[in-house]
């Protein structure tokens, strides 16, 4: 089942600012909502998103329950060498999702 959509350019120039788009399938249940039977729906959120490039962290986001379902995040980076991104989402109930993408920098 599809869980994450990542949009990274395949090629970039040295020092060019590129945009990375990420979309991940997750309910982001706040922990404040009441279910049909009157019970509080337990919190189930992604807490952190970390992006590394060739092993070094380049971006991190801390999410709260106020991030919408199916979290969407776009951000920027500038690279000086080709390599691989790793995208890692971690959250409640041992949620862990890791994706990778490579890019040629010339």
């Amino acid at each position: 089942m599809a869980r994450a959509l990542i949009n990274v350019p395949k090629i970039a120039k040295v020092g060019e600012i590129i945009e990375i788009k990420t979309l991940v399938s997750h309910p982001m249940e706040t922990g404040y909502r009441v279910g049909l039977g009157g019970e509080i729906l337990p919190r189930d959120i992604i807490q952190t998103f970390v992006c590394t490039f060739n092993g070094a962290q380049i971006y991190r986001a801390d999410f709260s329950p106020a991030v919408a379902a199916n979290p969407y995040l776009t951000f920027h980076t500038m690279l000086s060498e080709s390599g691989a991104f790793e995208f890692r989402w971690e959250g409640d109930n041992d949620f862990l999702l890791v994706e990778t993408a490579s890019i040629t920098v010339e």
Binding site: M1, A2, R3, L5, N7, K21, L23, S25, A69, N70, Y72
Partner: peptide
């Protein structure tokens, strides 16, 4: 934008 549209997951589910 497919990269921003949350229904893209459904398309990918169907494709699989």
């Amino acid at each position: 934008d497919d990269a921003a549209n949350p229904a893209s997951f459904s398309v990918l589910d169907g494709e699989a």
